[in-house]
Design a binder for these strands. Structure first.
Length: 239
DNA sequence: GTTGAGCGTT
């Protein structure tokens, strides 16, 4: 994995986690490590990937040894262009185990700090409006573009009074037939399109004989093979 | 071959 040869989190007892967003899908931990390591001591860099495909999800986690360096890296690397894309570095808000994190430092669960009834404000007063107002505001231009689109939409409307109607194909039903409750693995892959793939009260031989088969022997072998295939593919059906 | 809001692994 993207670790340094260790499985799982090395040690988060005294490490600060930074969340890096807006990174390209081609950016790897090895590419971020030297970048973040230059600003401080990076303990580990982890990039969550998809279990199915294995591609990066577009964000990475960088763990620093000291909060000072982490904070510095956040202010320095936040907004840096990597691989042609601007990345966003910020302290992790949640932990790997769903634990609360303050400034990248893992804190005790709410149950523990629950007893702390001391000057506790119902809402955080650290709220700031510095979230989308960074170098290059895509939202700003987007808003303008959207406004234009809206105006245009109003002028050159479809003509009919059915804006809510969104039918991709009125003549064609997207899902006329719902998947049957049966465990249909591949309805189009198997040769049998009927319901029961393996009727226990029927002889495959008879069916084959009934069908036009120039070489019954070959058919028999094929049928046998098919049956075996079914057994292998869906042994559940058998019993 | 693609995409773009967000919070993590043995």
């Amino acid at each position: 994995m993207s670790h340094f040869g260790r499985a799982g989190p090395p040690d988060i007892r005294d490490t600060y986690s930074l969340l890096v967003l807006n990174i390209t899908f081609r950016t790897t931990a090895d590419d971020l490590f030297p970048l973040f390591d230059k600003y401080g001591k990076v303990v580990d860099v982890f990039i969550p990937r998809d279990r199915r495909s294995g591609d990066s999800r577009g964000f990475a986690f960088v763990r620093y040894k000291y909060a000072d360096e982490a904070q510095k890296a956040v202010e320095k690397l936040d907004g840096r262009v990597v691989d042609g894309r601007e990345i966003m570095v910020q302290f992790a808000k949640y932990g790997p185990n769903a634990e609360r994190i303050h400034k990248g430092k893992i804190m005790e669960p709410l149950e523990k700090i629950k007893g702390r009834s001391r000057s506790r404000s119902p809402r955080p007063r650290d709220y700031r409006h510095q979230s989308r107002s960074r170098s290059g505001s895509p939202g700003y231009r987007k808003e303008r573009g959207r406004a234009k689109d809206e105006r245009r939409s109003r002028s050159g409307s479809y003509g009919s009074a059915s804006p809510a109607r969104r039918s991709p194909s009125p003549g064609r039903s997207p899902s006329p037939r719902r998947t049957p409750p049966s465990r249909g693995r591949s309805p189009a892959g198997n040769s049998n399109k009927e319901g029961s793939p393996i009727p226990r009260s029927v002889s495959p031989r008879g069916r084959v004989a009934d069908s036009r088969t120039p070489s019954p022997r070959n058919s028999d072998a094929e049928v046998s093979h098919e049956l075996h295939f079914y057994n292998c593919l869906d042994p559940d059906v058998g019993g």
